[in-house]
């Protein structure tokens, strides 16, 4: 089997909480927000790997670690087989950025409102010195816009972001990510802020570009329906760890982890007959803070199947429940 494009091993990111002078003097131990607490996965060429979870689970932080916008506290990252966890020089970092690009969640705030579309797309070219003449760059920009179906490009390059619709802006953001011909794209909730009817368009486009340009995606989302549609693999995250991982359809049609089951139960579905029936949600309470991670299985306080004496004391391991389907739960298969 070929090398994975991206390999992440036991990635950790802890954010320290400021203690304050008194705390430090009293010798209080430093506390951390354990945003990412030991995450490992592999993504193969032209695959879409989805990181799914609610806010605070660490999926966005993982994305930023892969983008190297944040430095990991522990763990290793491999891109195309090379260890890229520690990049020292500016050139190395710049070279990395050419290969790994990002699409942000908010199509409005991810572009400088004073830039024109032309400037937005020219920026990556200028930074990496692609296209020596203006004409060359202009051509690349027009081609990029055509690829994301913003035509005719001449009409749009002079506009500012606020003159475009949400869907159009997000397509420009995709164009900006693709203009450098990267190997890997981290898409952080790329369609969450768009209308449902537009999401389809953008996701379709991303799928098409995957085929045409051979990019590999890390798709971060909280929406399981789009994950099923767009992703090949799904990893469900909770409080900084992956609790279930496998092919998209397998995870959705046969969820093993109680959290996955709860998530799936919570997804709204267009079935109006059920409108007066209170939906059963196999989950209790609220997401705890990532500062005080519960002992044992971190999901246990909210788990309706929790076994006292086991789940609250011992941390479960990620085991291959069935071929390519991994779960981190003591009770996997028994519920």
């Amino acid at each position: 089997m070929a090398e994975p494009i991206l390999k992440v091993e036991n990635l950790k990111k802890y954010f320290p909480i400021k203690r304050g002078l008194l705390g430090a003097l009293r010798g209080e131990p430093p506390r951390f927000v354990r945003a990412v607490d030991g995450v490992s996965f592999e993504v193969y060429k032209q695959e879409v790997f989805a990181l799914v979870g609610e806010s605070g689970c660490g999926k966005t932080t993982t994305g930023k670690l892969v983008m190297k916008l944040l430095e990991p506290t522990d763990g290793r990252i491999y891109l195309e087989g090379r260890d890229v966890t520690e990049l020292k020089t500016q050139e190395e970092i710049k070279a990395y950025r050419r290969k790994v690009q990002m699409i942000f969640q908010d199509p409005f705030s991810s572009m400088n409102p004073r830039f024109r579309i032309y400037d937005v797309l020219e920026e990556p070219l200028l930074i990496h010195g692609i296209g020596e003449t203006r004409a060359e760059r202009e051509e690349l920009i027009h081609k990029a816009l055509e690829m994301v179906k913003i035509v005719p490009p001449e009409d749009y390059v002079g506009r500012h972001p606020h003159m475009l619709s949400g869907g159009q802006r997000q397509r420009v953001a995709i164009a900006r990510a693709l203009i450098l011909n990267p190997t890997f794209i981290v898409a952080d909730e790329p369609v969450s802020m768009l209308d449902v009817s537009i999401r389809a368009e953008v996701l379709e486009l991303m799928k098409e570009l995957k085929e045409k340009m051979g990019v590999t995606y890390l798709y971060i989302t909280h929406d399981l329906s789009t994950a099923r549609y767009f992703a090949d693999w799904i990893a469900v995250m909770y409080l900084g760890r992956i609790v279930e991982m496998g092919p998209a359809k397998v995870v959705i049609d046969n969820p093993i982890h109680p959290y996955t089951r709860a998530l799936l139960a919570a997804v709204p579905e267009p079935i109006p007959e059920r409108r007066n029936i209170i939906k059963e949600l196999p989950i209790k309470g609220e997401v705890p803070s990532a500062v005080n991670i519960p002992p044992g299985c971190r999901f246990h306080p909210r788990c309706v199947y929790m076994e006292k004496g086991l789940c609250d004391i011992k941390h479960p391991q990620l085991v291959e429940y069935e071929h390519n389907h991994w779960v981190e739960c003591h009770l996997a298969g028994k519920i």
Binding site: M67, L69, Q90, I93, K94, R97, R98, Q101, M102, F104, D106, S109, S110, M111, N112, P113, R114, E123, P124, I127, H128, R176, L180
Partner: peptide, 26 residues
């Protein structure tokens, strides 16, 4: 803290570019 500054960093922009192209004009 704006997202577009983070996006510029993600594109590979250096400190100088961020200060003069994104921060100063505002």
């Amino acid at each position: 803290e704006q997202t577009y500054v983070e996006a510029a960093r993600a594109l590979g922009a250096g400190t100088g570019r961020i200060i003069f192209k994104h921060i100063m004009p505002q």
